[in-house]
Simulated assay, not measured.
Amino acid sequence: MSCEEMGPGEAAGSDCSEVLHRVYEYLDGEMTTADTVKIKQHLEACGPCLHQYDLDQALKALVKRSCACEEAPVELRTSIMARITTIRYEISE
């Protein structure tokens, strides 16, 4: 069942924007068990979010392979994460 069939932006009790906003936490195993289950259930029920998750997972794997021997400075990581958050916020509006 897709998000459209379940209602505007909701599947398995989660809002699509929340799932997409937290997908990297899910990929990195940085969520509580309850949140992990919630996101997993949403992805199983929502085709569009699952597709985005697959893209994010592939991107993360590509970056990891490309940068395996280098570690990004903390300032760079913080800056990138802030920019991603800003972009996602702008898109969700």
Rank of each mutant, 00 (worst) to 15 (best):
T85E: 14
S92D: 12
V63C: 09
Y89W: 10
S17L: 11
Y53L: 03
E4S: 11
G9Q: 06
D56T: 07
A58R: 09
A72F: 12
L50W: 04
A12R: 04
G9Y: 07
G29C: 10
E93S: 04
I39C: 03
P73Y: 14
E10L: 13
R88M: 06
E44R: 04
R77K: 14
A82Q: 14
M81P: 00
E70W: 13
L27D: 05
V63I: 13
A61F: 07
I87P: 03
M6S: 15
S92R: 10
A11T: 02
G9I: 05
M81Y: 08
K64I: 05
S14I: 01
E30R: 11
E93D: 04
V74S: 12
C49M: 05
A45G: 01
D54A: 11
G13D: 11
C16W: 02
S79T: 14
Y53H: 06
M6T: 11
T36Q: 05
I84F: 07
L20P: 02
L50T: 02
K60T: 15
R83C: 08
M6F: 12
Q57K: 15
C69Y: 13
G29V: 06
Y26S: 01
L43R: 01
H51T: 08
C16D: 03
S17N: 10
M81T: 10
C69K: 15
K60W: 07
Y89S: 13
T78G: 00
C16T: 03
C67Q: 12
K60C: 08
L62N: 09
K38V: 02
G7Y: 02
I84C: 08
A34G: 05
K40S: 14
S79L: 15
M1E: 08
M1W: 02
D15F: 07
